[in-house]
Design a protein around this nucleic acid. Structure first.
Length: 459
DNA sequence: TTAGGGTTAG
C-alpha cells in the first residue's frame, strides 16, 4: 500500500517537472525514487513519453519506451497514443500507421484517441480517403466518436476540398448528440472563409455569437481574417482592438493577419504602426511575420529596407524561406530591377529551396514587362511546374512584343491541356492576330477557345 | 487527440 502511494507521489512529481520541461531533474527524481524502493510504473513512463514527444523529440521518446520495456513494464494504449501523437506532429505517417498496427498486434485495443490521432495524421499528410475510412472503422468497432473526432473530420473535409461534407457534418452534430464547441466554430469559420463561402461564414459567426461561448485569441484572429476577406478592413481592425480590450494578448498570428491585410489594402502607414506595436510588445516576431513586413517594404518599392529586414532575419538566427525569396523576387520585378530579381531566384536555388513556382511566375511577368520576352521563355523552360499564371503572363508579354503567332501557339497548347489562361490574355491574342492581318489564325484561335469553353462547360 | 499566419497576373 505504501509502495503504491509512493509511486503515486512520484508520478505527481514527474508530471509537474515535465510540465515545466525540467527533464534532467525528472530523471534524477526517478533514480532517487528507485534507490528508496519507489519504482516507476506505466504512468511514470507514459508521462515522460508524452512530454518527450511534445517538447524534446520522437527519437528520445522511443528511447524512454525502450527503457520502459527493459524495466519489464508493458506499454498500454496511452503509451501508443502519445507516440502516435508525436509522430503525427512530425508528419511521420508511416510511424503513426506502424504504431497503430503494432498496438493491434500486441492485443491492445485502440481507443477513440488512437483513431482520432491516426485520422488527423492521415488528413494532414494528404490521405483524406483513408482518414475518412478510419472514421467509419471507428464507428463499426463500436467506439463512439467524440466532439474531437467530429472536429478532426470537419477540419479534414475542409483541408481536402470537401467543404460540402464539412458543412453537412457540422449541421448534423446535434443529431449525433453534440453541440459545436469553440474549436468547432473556429474550424468552420476558417474553412468557410478559405473556401470563399463568405455568406455561410457570416451565418456561422452569427450562430457562434448566439451560442454564448466565450471567444479566445484564435477565434478573434479568424474573425478578423473573415472581415478582411469580406473587404471590411475597418471592422477587422475593430475586432483586433476588441480582442485587446477583452484582455487577450495579441500574438504574432493576430499581428501578422492585420499587418498583411493592411499592406494588401495599400495602407502601409497603418501596417507600420501595428508592426512597431508588435515589436514594442515583444510578440515573438517570427519568420512568417518578417515575410509580411518584407512584403510591406516591397509594396512601397523600398527594396533596401526589404533587404535590411532579411539581414535582421539572419541576425536572429533564422533563415530565409521560399516566401522570403518569392516576395523579394516579386518586389525587385515590380521595382523594375529584374536582374536583382534573377539574382534572388538564383540565391533561392543555391540555398536548396529549389525554384518556387510563384517566384518564377513573378520573374516571367517582370521580364515580359521589361521587354525581355526571350529571357522569360528561358525561365519557363527551366520550370518543372507551370500554371495558369505562368502562361497568362508570358502570353501577355508576347502580345506586348507583337509576337502574336508565338502567343497563339502557347495559347493553343494551354487550351489543349486544359490550363486556364486569363480572358484578357486570350483577348490580346485574338485582337493582335486580327489587327496584324492574321485573320485565319485568329479564327482558329476563336474556335479553339470556344471548344475549350464548351468542353469545360460539359464537364 | 481537434482550431489560427506570410508571396505572383488582370
Amino acid at each position: 500500500m505504501r509502495g503504491r502511494f509512493s509511486t503515486q507521489l512520484l508520478n505527481v512529481c514527474i508530471a509537474s517537472l515535465c510540465k515545466v520541461r525540467k527533464f534532467e531533474k525528472a530523471e534524477v527524481v526517478i533514480v532517487d525514487g528507485i534507490r528508496v524502493g519507489c519504482l516507476p510504473d506505466v504512468v511514470t513512463y507514459n508521462t515522460l513519453i508524452a512530454a518527450y514527444c511534445r517538447f524534446v523529440g520522437l527519437d528520445q521518446a522511443y528511447l524512454i519506451l525502450r527503457r520502459m520495456r527493459e524495466a519489464g513494464i508493458k506499454p498500454d494504449v496511452i503509451t501508443y497514443n502519445s507516440l502516435m501523437a508525436g509522430a503525427s506532429r512530425c508528419h511521420l505517417l508511416s510511424y503513426c500507421r506502424l504504431l497503430f498496427e503494432e498496438m493491434n498486434k500486441n492485443g491492445i485495443e485502440p481507443d477513440e484517441w488512437s483513431y482520432n490521432t491516426l485520422m488527423h495524421c492521415l488528413f494532414s499528410c494528404g490521405c483524406p480517403e483513408e482518414a475518412i475510412q478510419i472514421f467509419s472503422q471507428m464507428t463499426s468497432k463500436n467506439i463512439t466518436p467524440s466532439i474531437v473526432s467530429y472536429n478532426t473530420l470537419i477540419a479534414g473535409y475542409f483541408k481536402s476540398g470537401r467543404a460540402v461534407n464539412a458543412i453537412m457534418t457540422f449541421r448534423r452534430l446535434q443529431k449525433f448528440g453534440f453541440s459545436p464547441e469553440l474549436v468547432t466554430y473556429n474550424i468552420m469559420l476558417d474553412g468557410l472563409v478559405k473556401s470563399g463561402k463568405l455568406g455561410q461564414a457570416r451565418r456561422v459567426l452569427q450562430e457562434f455569437r448566439e451560442s454564448g461561448l466565450v471567444p479566445n485569441a484564435v477565434i478573434y484572429t479568424t474573425v478578423m481574417k473573415f472581415c478582411f476577406r469580406s473587404k471590411k478592413f475597418d471592422h477587422g481592425v475593430d475586432v483586433f482592438y476588441e480582442m485587446m480590450g477583452k484582455g487577450y494578448t495579441a500574438d504574432v498570428f493576430a499581428y501578422c493577419a492585420v499587418i498583411s491585410a493592411l499592406v494588401k489594402k495599400g495602407k502601409t502607414e497603418d501596417a507600420r504602426f501595428f508592426a512597431q506595436q508588435m515589436f514594442r510588445k515583444g510578440a515573438g516576431v517570427d519568420l512568417a511575420c518578417y515575410n509580411a513586413l518584407i512584403y510591406a517594404h516591397c509594396k512601397e518599392r523600398n527594396m533596401n529596407a526589404a533587404l535590411q529586414m532579411v539581414n535582421e532575419i539572419e541576425e536572429c538566427g533564422m533563415e530565409s524561406d521560399e516566401y522570403t525569396y518569392s516576395t523579394l523576387v516579386d518586389g525587385f520585378c515590380k521595382s523594375g530591377d529584374v536582374d536583382s530579381a534573377w539574382n534572388q531566384l538564383r540565391a533561392m536555388e543555391i540555398s536548396g529551396l529549389g525554384m518556387n513556382l510563384v517566384a518564377c511566375n513573378s520573374l516571367i511577368d517582370g521580364l515580359c514587362k521589361a521587354g525581355r520576352v526571350n529571357h522569360a521563355i528561358h525561365v519557363l523552360k527551366m520550370m518543372k511546374i507551370r500554371d495558369s499564371f505562368t502562361y497568362s503572363a508570358l502570353i501577355h508579354g508576347l502580345c506586348k512584343a507583337r509576337r502574336f503567332r508565338a502567343a497563339a501557339a502557347f495559347l493553343f497548347n494551354c487550351l489543349e491541356n486544359g490550363t486556364n489562361v486569363l480572358r484578357s490574355a486570350q483577348r490580346a491574342v485574338l485582337h493582335g492576330l486580327r489587327c496584324s492581318g492574321f485573320r485565319k489564325d485568329a479564327k482558329k484561335v476563336r474556335v479553339a477557345i470556344w471548344k475549350a469553353g464548351f468542353l469545360n462547360y460539359k464537364s
